[in-house]
């Protein structure tokens, strides 16, 4: 047993450096020493840049015009508040988050239940690896290749549809189809992640309790509510949180597929921001929007953590 041997090794340890370490070990600073690296990362790559960004958000500053930054108070904020494009993008982003995360969660849970207890599946390891591949591929590649797959004239999808007598659909160019088509790609990519998370969540359920339920012939619904859910929900909720986070940030994929087009039907807030920041280099305005998104992100996270904490509290 690994743990025991670790202890034995400890026991046999020659304390040649013990004196040196004593002061360190007994000092109250030890736990703080441990978190210093994380705090440093946090301060240098987050706190300082974020403060800088907040500062910048009060300025009118674009790199490209060559003019020095000019303090303009909250007029960036006012502009964003009155900006239909931003609000349109935000609304679309919420639809996007809801649609992708929702479908992926439901589909992921269903498929995970299908794969639960598949221990005897021949070649299970390979099957699961194949199942997980979509999320392992660079979104840049996925975007480029799905653009080709969706193409009306050269795309395999339209070819397969034509075998069933369905007329060509310009998935990415058509107003009605662009958003669902892009959603589908995201669902394809990330449902495997939700399968993985749900499998992990199911793994959190003690085997003994499940066996007991089997012996008691407890109906499925009761097993779900009384055994699986209480144990599995923590991991599942965390998985959904991670998915929400990544979905909110989606950009590479849509950038490759449609650039937010046609018109603005697939334009998400991250893409709009990217345009302003790194095509227009309007740093002041973009910083303001970035700060707003930061607050939205914090709000999102709080809600999830609140739910997570609730479920933790219940468990204890």
């Amino acid at each position: 047993m690994e743990n025991v041997s670790a202890l034995q090794r400890t026991a046999g340890k020659k304390p040649w450096h013990k004196k040196l370490m004593d002061g360190f070990d007994n000092s109250n600073l030890f736990p703080y020493c441990l978190i210093i690296p994380v705090l440093l990362f946090f301060i240098i790559w987050n706190l300082i840049p974020t403060l800088w960004m907040i500062g910048m958000s009060f300025y009118n500053y674009a790199f490209t015009t060559g003019a020095p930054e000019k303090f303009n108070g909250i007029s960036n904020l006012i502009d964003i508040m009155n900006n239909d494009t931003v609000w349109g993008n935000l609304g679309r982003t919420f639809t996007w988050v809801l649609a992708t995360t929702g479908i992926e969660t439901v589909l992921g849970i269903l498929l995970a239940f299908l794969f639960w207890n598949s221990a005897k599946l021949p070649g299970r390891r390979l099957a699961l690896t194949l199942l997980f591949t979509p999320m392992l591929i660079a979104p840049a590649s996925v975007g480029a290749f799905f653009k080709l797959l969706y193409e009306p004239d050269f795309g395999v999808i339209n070819y397969l549809l034509s075998l069933f007598g369905i007329a060509k659909i310009n998935f990415l160019g058509d107003l009605k189809w662009a958003f669902p088509a892009v959603t589908l790609v995201d669902v394809w990519m990330w449902t495997p992640f939700m399968i993985l998370i749900t499998l992990a969540a199911l793994g959190s359920v003690p085997k003994a309790e499940l066996e007991a339920a089997e012996i008691d012939r407890l109906p499925w619904t009761k097993r779900l509510v009384h055994i699986i859910w209480p144990y599995g929900k923590f991991v599942l909720m965390l998985g959904i949180l991670l998915r929400t986070i990544d979905s909110f940030k989606t950009m590479d994929l849509i950038f490759m597929l449609t650039r937010g087009g046609p018109g603005n039907t697939t334009e998400l807030v991250a893409i709009g921001l990217y345009r302003k920041a790194f095509e227009g280099f309007t740093m002041g305005w973009s910083s303001t929007l970035a700060v707003i998104l930061l607050f939205i992100a914090i709000a999102f996270t709080s809600v999830y953590l609140y739910i997570l904490n609730l479920s933790n509290a219940e468990k204890e």
Binding site: D174, P262, N264, R275, K276, G280
Partner: peptide, 23 residues
């Protein structure tokens, strides 16, 4: 103009919205 990329992306959005029939 130095602002060309912002001006360009604005009109690209408008033009493609019209071409695709969104407006």
């Amino acid at each position: 103009e130095p602002t060309y990329s912002t001006m360009l992306s604005t009109q690209q959005e408008g033009f493609t919205a019209y071409a695709s029939g969104q407006v």
